[in-house]
Design a protein around this nucleic acid. Structure first.
Lengths: 174, 174
DNA sequence: GGGAACGCTTCACAGTGGCGAAACGCTCGC
DNA sequence: GCGAGCGTTTCGCCACTGTGAAGCGTTCCC
């Protein structure tokens, strides 16, 4: 969109939380904003530069809609503004889950990830998954069980999704 | 900073979650990232444009992290309107925490920062962290323990929010 | 169909070690 | 001497981890 010619449209997009790139006409001062979904570029500009601005903005907007949790080297798991600290074993388990975020990770792979030098009793994994679930709840992350296959990490669905779970189709492999 | 000449420095800043503006040299492709704390501009560029990029980034960074406390050379720590004075050892510890505001600082790093010429007993650090906590409380700053990892400095307000918003069942473990 | 086997969840309990906190004593500058 | 800063000792709680076992629904097999 053009700026400041299309100021009205900018405000509409802003109020509906949609991303936008302002094309600055010559001699116009750049707007300074804290809005993460807004960017600007002075025209004329290279095709490549414009594309980079749009693409970067698109990625950030997507990341905002389905935020990916990040686990740093100190065992701190961050998602949005919140964070929790994970003890060593659970941090390693979490790494395996994050590597395949949204996909199934087998119990075996989890055990190898959590205890690289040999797993303890079989039940240890179960207990740690339970503890991880409880730690993750405040961040709106959920670990789903895929029976006889493994576990899957995903963003916690809103409450209504969980309620329908009882009568819902089980996640099964075809 | 320049790009891609200073790529190493870019990565350092990224990993410590600090904002940065990349100055693109002629003919270089712009980087596309989801990092909210990074921006870029192609040089040569107008002084005004550069300032707008920096200022926008600064505002976003400030909005993301709460206001950053400042420690002067006399051991006076200021945040907003309030301030406290820190004795030498605690001032040095505070420097280490501020350098990585919001991230975990290991006990080891803290000990090296607090006692550059060799650390005293093991528990001296614990006691000083306790004393720091009490001094920081009036400024609404909190030092969080990340067990077996280190300590983390943050604004103390967020914690209350998180506790109150969670309608979760009380989670306790023996 | 019905019972046994299986897979997962959850609780209860114990050992180990990290950390919090108080109390005490020493040193240094005013 | 007095008070602030600093370090040590000591005690105790609790986080982290692993084990055993109960509960429950699903799957398998006769």
């Amino acid at each position: 969109m053009r700026w400041p010619a299309e100021e009205v449209r900018r405000d509409e997009l802003r109020s509906s939380s949609r991303p936008r790139v302002l094309l600055l006409e010559d001699g116009v001062a750049p707007p300074v904003t804290t809005d993460h979904l807004e960017d600007w570029i002075r025209v004329p500009a290279g095709e490549e530069d414009l594309r980079a601005r749009v693409e970067g903005l698109r990625l950030r907007a997507a990341a905002r809609l389905s935020p990916t949790p990040e686990l740093d080297d100190d065992g701190v798991l961050r998602l949005g503004v919140g964070w929790v600290s994970l003890p060593p074993v659970e941090a390693r388990l979490m790494t395996a889950l994050l590597d395949r975020f949204g996909a199934v990770v087998s119990r075996d792979a989890l055990a190898r990830s959590g205890w690289p030098s040999g797993a303890p009793g079989r039940n240890a994994l179960d207990v740690h998954m339970l503890r991880l679930r409880r730690r993750l709840a405040p961040l709106a992350l959920a670990i789903r069980t895929v029976r006889s296959r493994g576990y899957l990490l995903e963003a916690s669905a809103p409450a209504d999704d969980e309620l329908s779970d009882a009568a819902a189709p089980r996640v099964r492999e075809a």
